[in-house]
Design a protein around this nucleic acid. Sequence first.
DNA 1: CATATAGTTCAAGACCACGTGAACTGCACC
DNA 2: GGTGCAGTTCACGTGGTCTTGAACTATATG
Lengths: 198, 198
Amino acid sequence: MKGYLWTGGPGSPASEAPAEEGRLAAWEAIAVDAVGNVIEFWGFKRNQGRVWALLYLRGEPLTAGEIERELDLSKGGVSMLLRDLERWGVIQRVRLPNDTAWRYAAETDLVRMVTHVIEEREAGFVARIRADLAEARRLAETSSEVPHERLARLEKMATLAEHVERALRLFIKTSRLDVSGVLSVFRDEGGASRREKR
Amino acid sequence: MKGYLWTGGPGSPASEAPAEEGRLAAWEAIAVDAVGNVIEFWGFKRNQGRVWALLYLRGEPLTAGEIERELDLSKGGVSMLLRDLERWGVIQRVRLPNDTAWRYAAETDLVRMVTHVIEEREAGFVARIRADLAEARRLAETSSEVPHERLARLEKMATLAEHVERALRLFIKTSRLDVSGVLSVFRDEGGASRREKR
DNA sequence: CATATAGTTCAAGACCACGTGAACTGCACC
DNA sequence: GGTGCAGTTCACGTGGTCTTGAACTATATG
């Protein structure tokens, strides 16, 4: 996770030297980076977002090598990024008929990535917090030394945690609902691509 | 080293080494750390959460020095943490009648911190993303070279961004509503403390 | 004025996560 | 076998954030 207040001006990053990007069109670079920023903001790696964005924008599956060139990343890096993305189900590995290399295609629902993974880490995380607070409470209760008042505050804290948790679940749910609407927009254009899992 | 025999953990395995924490009770340490983890998860500094939690649990205002000792932080660090927290309105700086030093008291709504700040960084952030995508679109449109299909995808992307944004706003709103209910639980116990801003 | 305590600021360092690049595996084709 | 390419893995370097510790300001007290 990164900065808090986002001191960076809203100015466009477009002004920076775009020469870096291999043969990416300017508009592609901007869009790709935008997604990268969003995704980083949500606690993922910037480049995970960039890779997904590139694949999505291109529409057709790309090889690791192409991604490597377009995004100016290292071989190893691309490999790992792709692995992550595939594991999360936001890209798909496809093998074209007479091709020697794997190709990767973007799944349309980036949202799945966010909700799914957030959900997942939420699960473990929330569980742990809950356990910690419960433990604290147990300790505080057995130890006779703890003032009634403080114990009360501890309990309030747990309550608050629960509520925040509930709010978050709700968010995920509504988000997904809301998104199901959005997804209709994404109904595939042709869906010609033949897909076979490895 | 400070071997206190205090509660000594009645029934507790006490396997952890709480020796680190100044003179924090074991249960306090756990709770404080739990909050620290949550807050870090939300993109703040762990110690910001810990400080707030300590202040909240203690109920009475503490001096910077006390916080420093209890949480085993550096002078400078505490100063900066307190400044942040105060700026966000989640703690309050109070001067007790015949005391020479400032004291700090926790505001009851940590939630304000999350919603408020998240809201804020959202604002700038979302604006920027939106601007970037718009820019990309503009570029792509003017450049005659861009395939209709890709342009369509770019637009879908923007749509998705908007929806996610909307979902997030909704989350913040409902969260706040939900929380307003929670806050009743927090109705202050006495609220005698005299408060004057610096 | 000297001393002490409270608080702030900042450069230096600790720390950690990310990406790199090289070594390695696996596979195909000659 | 050997050559070439696709892909994986991992130790290391780099960059960025957080914390520290010391220098500094401020304010009171004798």
